[in-house]
Amino acid sequence: MTRLRLHPERHLVARIGWLRAAVLGANDGIVSTASLIVGVAAATPMQSDIMLAGVAGLVAGAMSMAAGEYVSVSSQSDTEQADLSRERSELSEDIAFEHDELAAIYVERGLDRELARKVAEQLMAKDALAAHARDELGISEITAARPVQAALTSAATFAVGAALPLLTVVLSPAGVLIPMVALASLGFLALLGAVGAKAGGAGAAKAMIRVTFWGALAMALTAGIGAIFGTVV
């Protein structure tokens, strides 16, 4: 008898939770800190002031990212748990109706009614709540909200991203600090866009153009504001 061999598959959608938080955190770290540094540098030549602003931006930004991600993803998690609780209650009150409801979902997806009812019956016999969570609510192990993971990932990657323009400040001569920080940061952003796209299985070129465009715009705006206020104050 021939046995069916199943090869292991690694689907990229499993990465979507931590990948989104990681890319967002690192991108914000580079853009916000580099923009802050360029803006302050345009207003004052004092490297100590520039470093102080950059370090403050790193700490404040990392904490803000962690708090924002935790609150946002916690809200998603609360909604998921409320839906699961309601579904659990409905299963205990009228399981026959829930069976019909699940079977109807499979009919809409292309199964004939008899097969759909058998599939629903067998899945619900194994784990009724999991079956309804996945196929009725769209909640699965892969897509479930993880607030702590998102918060820690965002904070850590923001700090790493913010450290890159700060390192450039340390290594750059005072006279060319602004162009060096800007060019290095755009290079970091392009690399980040390529890595994020590669990890997510998407094309690198579009991601690189997208992140460098918005990074360049942010730095140009803050440099202009720093130059204006530096001459006024």
Rank of each mutant, 00 (worst) to 15 (best):
I37T: 04
A223D: 05
I225D: 01
L177Q: 01
R146I: 02
L84N: 06
F188E: 05
A56P: 10
A205K: 12
A133W: 03
F188N: 06
T2K: 13
A53C: 08
E121D: 10
T79F: 14
M63A: 12
L191A: 15
V233C: 04
I139D: 02
E136Q: 14
I95K: 09
A14N: 15
G226Q: 08
I209G: 15
E108M: 07
L123I: 05
A151C: 05
L191F: 06
I142A: 07
A218F: 01
A184T: 09
L171D: 09
F229D: 01
F229M: 03
A133L: 06
L4D: 01
L186W: 06
G39P: 07
G203P: 01
V181W: 14
K126R: 14
N27P: 10
L102Y: 02
V233A: 10
D100P: 06
Q76V: 08
L191K: 04
L192P: 08
L115I: 09
K118V: 15
A125S: 14
T157I: 04
D94L: 06
L115K: 13
S92D: 11
W214V: 14
S64A: 09
S48P: 15
F97W: 09
T33Q: 14
R10C: 09
A22I: 00
L186T: 11
S89N: 13
L4A: 13
P45H: 09
V148L: 12
G224N: 05
L123A: 11
A205Y: 13
S72T: 00
R109H: 04
H7L: 13
G230P: 03
V148Y: 04
A156T: 11
A120G: 07
A60Q: 07
L189S: 13
L164H: 06
E9Q: 15
A34N: 12
L221K: 05
T168K: 06
L12A: 12
A199N: 05
L24G: 02
G175M: 05
P8R: 08
A197T: 00
L84F: 09
V71E: 00
H7P: 11
E114M: 13
G226K: 00
A151F: 07
D100Y: 07
L6E: 14
L36W: 10
T222W: 03
L111P: 03
V176E: 10
V71H: 05
G161C: 02
A162L: 13
S172F: 02
G39A: 03
A199C: 05
M46P: 12
D112N: 08
T143N: 14
T79S: 13
M51S: 04
V71G: 07
R3L: 15
L91E: 10
A145I: 02
T153E: 00
A67K: 07
M51H: 11
A163G: 11
V55K: 10
E136D: 07
A104D: 10
L36M: 15
V71S: 03
A14K: 14
D127R: 08
E141S: 02
H99P: 12
A60H: 03
A116N: 04
E121M: 10
G68V: 03
A199H: 03
I228L: 02
